[in-house]
Computed example of a mutant assay.
Amino acid sequence: MRRQDLLDVSAAADKAALHARLVGVAQSLGFPFLSATLVIEQPGAPAVMVSVNETPQAYADIQNDVSKGRRDPVLHKLKTASVPIVYDQSFYAAAGEGGLWEEQAPFGYRNGVAMALHLPGGRHFLLGVDRHERLPSNDRAMTRLMADLQLLAVHTQEAALRVLLDEALAVGEIPSLTTRELEVLRWTMVGKDAWSVAQVLEVTESTVNFHLRNAERKLCVAGKHQAVLRAMALGLL
Rank of each mutant, 00 (worst) to 15 (best):
T156G: 15
V39Q: 11
V50P: 02
I174R: 08
A17D: 06
Q42V: 01
L127E: 11
A153L: 12
F210Q: 09
N214Q: 13
E205L: 02
Q104D: 09
R70K: 10
L177E: 05
A58L: 11
V25G: 09
V39A: 03
R186E: 14
V228M: 10
K79Y: 07
D130M: 09
D14S: 03
Q226M: 11
H118C: 01
H211E: 08
A141N: 07
E183G: 02
C220V: 01
V208G: 03
S90R: 14
P73A: 07
A231F: 06
L100R: 08
T188A: 10
A105M: 06
L75V: 11
A36E: 11
G223W: 10
Q57F: 01
L165V: 06
M142T: 01
L7Y: 01
F31T: 07
W195L: 15
Q4C: 05
A160N: 05
A93G: 07
L78W: 09
S82Q: 13
D5V: 10
F210L: 08
G235P: 13
A153E: 05
R131E: 05
A141G: 04
A116W: 12
H118D: 01
E205V: 07
M49N: 15
V66H: 01
E102C: 04
L151R: 04
V113N: 12
A233Q: 14
M142H: 02
R110D: 11
Y59M: 08
W195A: 15
V171C: 12
K68P: 02
S196L: 10
R70N: 13
A194V: 06
E102A: 14
V25L: 15
K218A: 07
A58G: 10
V50W: 04
G108I: 04
L135Q: 07
E102Q: 14
I85L: 12
V39W: 10
V184H: 03
Y87K: 07
V221E: 05
V66K: 06
L177F: 10
T55A: 05
R213E: 02
F31K: 06
D14M: 09
A194G: 09
L151G: 10
Y87T: 08
V25K: 10
L161E: 13
G121I: 14
K68S: 12
A231Q: 06
D148Q: 10
V221A: 02
Q42A: 00
